[in-house]
Design a protein around this nucleic acid. Structure first.
Length: 526
DNA sequence: AGTGTCTGCCCC
DNA sequence: ATTCTGC
DNA sequence: GCAGAATGGGCAGACACT
């Protein structure tokens, strides 16, 4: 029986442990001492999951509610000793089940009394578990190794079960229930973790990463990932993080029914397009349909969507993940009509890939994927078999303010407000924030520099004289309901500090407006 | 009924 | 999602 | 080479507040 306090002691030891083996050793040593019903909370908590990862919806406790609970823990009148690991887990499950009217108050009350049984240090760790911010350097692989060790079965088998079930909770549940792990196969309607691509900034760099000079090249569409399961219960659609989104897209369900497939699992992208022109709509518009459950028909008219498939994982009884890419693609072509397949060309050289990249961009798409034609489908991995190359643009922007960092960035101003000059209003105006792109050394330098030009100190945030110019990469300009300029940059990151430039040479709001309008030459519009 | 705040292993 | 960093 | 850490904009839905 493990006390929550003991679990926290372990977390601290794991955090400070150097090296994989020491961390793994600690995790498995404690695991084998636990009762079986403690395995699940133990493994979930270590990876920053307060409740099983296959439950629909979340705990309903985020930053704000935690802050309230932390500032006002309630000590019970008749405390029954320190909470056990299982007590904490069961309370969290109880909190998860609270829905409806006054649920926030009820959740807060349960959480506050749980925290009332804890030391302030334990409370902080509980908050970290709930927010999924453990920061103890534990990777899923370590947990799986520890599990294999405790169950005395092969590492690879545990990994395989995890890949096929997609959830730590289900893996532990299944393996510790005594099922023969060698007999576990993929299950229709249980989503799998999709394979991911590694980013490259140029086509050539992409070919270098995959290590061949002939590859398959696909259009990369600006939508969201979808995994389609087809079986006797009809089609179901799952997002990248395995959320079931079928009910938001009834029109897709309809035509997927017409595919000549009895059983299958397909991988692809959902994209939105303008009905009149067929041009792709901005991602921002597509998002109006993601997880929408109200007025679906109305939105389906305004924002039509389609699927573009690019892989098949399972087909009529056969798991295809170990087959080479090209074989899977041949099967895909056989069973799916061409209009629902991502545009793909095979045996492509880097120079031809470059042409396809420019063609994809000119049609309003995001870029290309470069894939090795002999690559297996590695569930849940961002390996070196698939590479993505995306279009981007660059602007010179002025830093208007900054916020203090947390964790490994404590002590540095590490999150920057970016601005442009608004000629009409005669002042600088924000068009977004970024924390990406600077090295530790540059962060240190920037902190010093910003502190020397502060005009207003708000504690967690400072505002500065508009003096520092940075070159910023971004993928798209979006309409913003949040920033005063009315625009925001999508995926902004700093490319370099422009010591050589004055703020007067940086971009203006007018430049942004022009660039925003220009996007619609290639893309559709609502 | 309308508006504001919070949450999401959210999507990107 | 992107980037930097530690192992 | 991989995974973790640190954080971005913006969406719908659930609930709180008035």
């Amino acid at each position: 029986m493990m006390l929550f306090r003991e679990f926290i002691e372990l977390c601290k030891r794991v955090k400070s442990a150097k090296g994989i083996n020491e961390k793994k050793g600690l995790i498995s040593t404690y695991l084998i001492r636990l009762d079986r019903d403690e395995w699940i909370p133990y493994i979930l908590f270590l990876t920053g999951h307060p409740i099983p990862d296959n439950l629909e919806g979340g705990l309903g406790i985020g930053y704000k509610l935690l802050k309230k609970a932390l500032s006002n823990p309630v000590r019970p009148l008749f405390p029954r000793g320190p909470p056990k690991l299982l007590d904490v887990y069961n309370t969290l499950l109880e909190i998860y089940r609270i829905r409806g009217r006054d649920s926030q108050a009820k959740r807060l009350s349960l959480l506050s009394s749980l925290m009332g049984l804890m030391s302030s240090e334990e409370r902080i760790w509980l908050a970290n578990i709930i927010l999924g911010e453990m920061r103890i350097g534990v990777v899923e692989g370590h947990i799986l190794s520890a599990l294999a060790y405790a169950l005395k079965i092969n590492d690879d088998i545990v990994r395989r079960v995890y890949m096929l079930r997609g959830s730590l909770y289900e893996t532990v549940d299944l393996l510790s229930s005594g099922v023969d792990p060698y007999k576990i196969s993929p299950k229709l309607y249980t989503p799998l973790r999709p394979m991911l691509g590694q980013p490259a900034s140029t086509v050539l760099e992409g070919y270098n990463i995959i290590g061949v000079n002939t590859a398959a090249v696909e259009y990369k569409y600006d939508g969201f990932r979808v995994q389609i399961h087809i079986g006797d219960r009809g089609p179901r659609l799952f997002s990248r993080r395995l959320t079931d989104v079928t009910d938001s897209f009834p029109e897709l369900k309809e035509y997927i029914y017409s595919f000549d497939v009895k059983e299958g699992i397909f991988d692809g992208e959902i994209i939105a397009y303008e009905r009149k022109t067929g041009k792709p709509l901005p991602f921002q518009d597509l998002m109006k349909r993601f997880r929408r459950l109200e007025n679906i028909d109305e939105y389906a008219r305004i924002i039509p969507v389609e699927v573009k498939l690019f892989d098949v994982i399972y087909l009529d009884g056969k798991l295809l993940i170990d087959k080479p890419y090209i074989e899977r693609r041949n099967l895909l072509d056989k069973v799916i009509p061409n209009e629902y397949i991502s545009k793909t060309l095979y045996d492509i050289s880097p120079s031809d890939a470059e042409k396809i990249f420019r063609e994809a961009i000119s049609k309003g798409h995001e870029g290309i994927m470069i894939k090795r034609m002999d690559s297996p489908y590695i569930l849940g991995s961002r390996g070196r078999y698939w590479v993505k190359v995306k279009d981007k643009d660059t602007l010179d922007l002025v830093i208007l303010g900054a916020e203090w960092g947390h964790g490994r960035r404590r002590g540095w101003l590490s999150d920057y407000y970016l601005g442009v000059y608004d000629v009409d209003r005669g002042e600088y105006t924000s068009i977004g924030k970024t924390f990406k792109g600077l090295t530790d050394e540059e962060l240190q330098y920037m902190t010093k520099k910003l502190l020397s030009i502060i005009v207003k100190d708000e504690g967690y945030r400072v505002w500065v004289k508009p003096e520092i110019v940075v070159e910023v990469d971004f993928n798209e300009i979006q309409r913003s309901p949040k920033y005063r300029s009315g625009y925001a940059l999508r995926l902004a990151r700093i490319r370099r500090i422009r010591e050589d430039k004055n703020p007067s040479e940086a971009s203006t709001l007018d430049d942004i407006r022009k660039l925003y309008r220009k996007q619609f030459v290639r893309k559709g519009r609502l």
